[in-house]
Amino acid sequence: MAEQIPFVEYLTLGDDPHLVAHECTGCGARFFDRRNACASCSGTDFKPARVATQGVLRSFTIVAFAAPGIDVPFVSAIVDCEGTSVRANIVNTPADPENVKLGMPVRLTTFPIGSDSEGVEAINFGFEPAA
C-alpha cells in the first residue's frame, strides 16, 4: 500500500480518521491553524482536542467558479461538530440544493486527492450525508 499523508496537519488518519484542534487551556477556544497565541484570551498554552466526526450542516454554498485545478461545482460548507465549527467540502452527494440541505446531519470521511512524484498519496477530508 502506498504511503499516505494527511492533506493538512490537523487531520489524523488511521482506522478512525478525525480532526484535532489546538484547544486553549485558558478559555477552551479551538483553532485549526498554527498559533502564536489564543485570539480569545491571548493565552499561549494549548492542548490537542479531538473534534467530533459527526456534525450538522450550518451553512453551505455551491461554488461554480473556482481557482484553476478545482473541479466545479463543489459544495463548501460550515459544519457544526458538536460545538466546534469546521470548514469543509460536502462530498459523496450531488452538488445541488436538492441534495444538500441546511440542518442535515453529516459525518467526516476521507479520500485521496492524488499522489506526488514519489508515490506518496495525500488524503483529504470532507463531510458526507449521514442519514
Partner: peptide
Amino acid sequence: YGAVAPVDGRIGTDTMPGVFAQIGME
C-alpha cells in the same frame, strides 16, 4: 494549516461570492 496543496476549493472556499453566500445561508 500545514497543507500539502492550496486549501481553497479543497477545504471549503475562499472566493468572496462563496464566503458571502455562506454568510447569508447561515
